[in-house]
Amino acid sequence: MTSTSSFVIVLGFDGSTHSHKALKWALDEAGRRNGELRLITAWSKPPMSWYPAVLETAAGEIVAEDSPERIAERLQADALKAAASEGIAATGQAVHADSAASAILDAAKDADLVIVGSRGHGGFPGLHLGSVSTQVIDHAPCPVLVVR
């Protein structure tokens, strides 16, 4: 539990369908508890391992694909706008980390609740629980809510 009077909720948000459902739940929970929301979006591509795809649009314009960092920042901005529209106090971090679970757990050290989607963008669609959710459940210093 935190030492402040505000109820702190950490949300792992990667833009997946499950994380959007988790965001909706987190906004509702923060509203009910007069709490604050900490949004964490992790990205992990080393600088030299990503090369932008160059695409041609239907209008003949050449555009470059966004970097993983830029995508994470855009996801954060969209989630923060959703929080603001609900009147929820929220902060966000787009974190460069090798492990999304570690980034979430670091943010949760003084949290009252962690909320994650049951799975993200991982490559095993048949799994009911993804690796990040599993690691967060196993190591979180506070209660964890997993949203399907």
Rank of each mutant, 00 (worst) to 15 (best):
S102P: 00
N34Y: 06
S67I: 00
G92F: 09
Y51L: 08
Q76T: 15
L80F: 11
S6K: 15
A103T: 11
L39M: 06
T17Q: 10
A108W: 03
S99T: 08
K109I: 05
S118R: 06
H121N: 10
R119D: 00
G12D: 03
E56R: 07
D98M: 15
E29K: 13
N34W: 05
V95A: 14
A26D: 09
E65Q: 13
P52R: 03
P125A: 11
R70D: 11
I9H: 02
F124H: 09
A77P: 01
E61Y: 03
L105Y: 00
R33F: 04
K109D: 04
A22D: 01
E69I: 06
H128V: 08
F13G: 01
S118N: 11
S44H: 15
V8W: 02
K109A: 13
I88Y: 12
S102E: 13
S19W: 05
S49T: 08
K81N: 09
V8S: 07
L23I: 06
D106R: 12
A94F: 14
A111L: 04
L11E: 10
K21W: 05
V95G: 12
G87S: 13
A42T: 09
H20Q: 15
F7A: 11
A59G: 03
S16L: 12
A84T: 07
H121V: 04
D78K: 12
A59C: 02
H96M: 13
E36R: 12
L27V: 06
Y51E: 02
I104E: 02
A108L: 04
E56S: 12
A83T: 09
S6G: 09
Q93Y: 14
L113Q: 11
W50A: 05
R70E: 12
T17W: 01
D66V: 06
W50R: 04
S6H: 05
A101G: 11
V10Y: 05
D98F: 12
A42F: 04
V54M: 10
G35P: 05
S6E: 11
D66Y: 05
G31D: 01
E61N: 10
N34F: 04
M48T: 09
A26G: 03
I62H: 10
S16D: 05
K21P: 02
K45F: 07
I9Y: 03
A30N: 13
S85Y: 05
P47T: 01
N34S: 13
I9V: 15
H18M: 10
K109W: 01
A97E: 14
E73C: 09
W50V: 02
A107C: 04
S6C: 09
A103P: 02
A30M: 13
G117M: 05
S85L: 13
I62A: 10
A107Y: 00
V114Y: 02
L27D: 00
S131T: 11
S44K: 12
G15Y: 08
F7H: 14
S118T: 03
G92E: 07
G35K: 03
L105M: 00
V116H: 00
A58N: 07
V95W: 14
I71K: 13
A59S: 10
A97P: 04
G123S: 15
S67V: 01
E36N: 14
A82V: 08
L75C: 12
G31W: 04
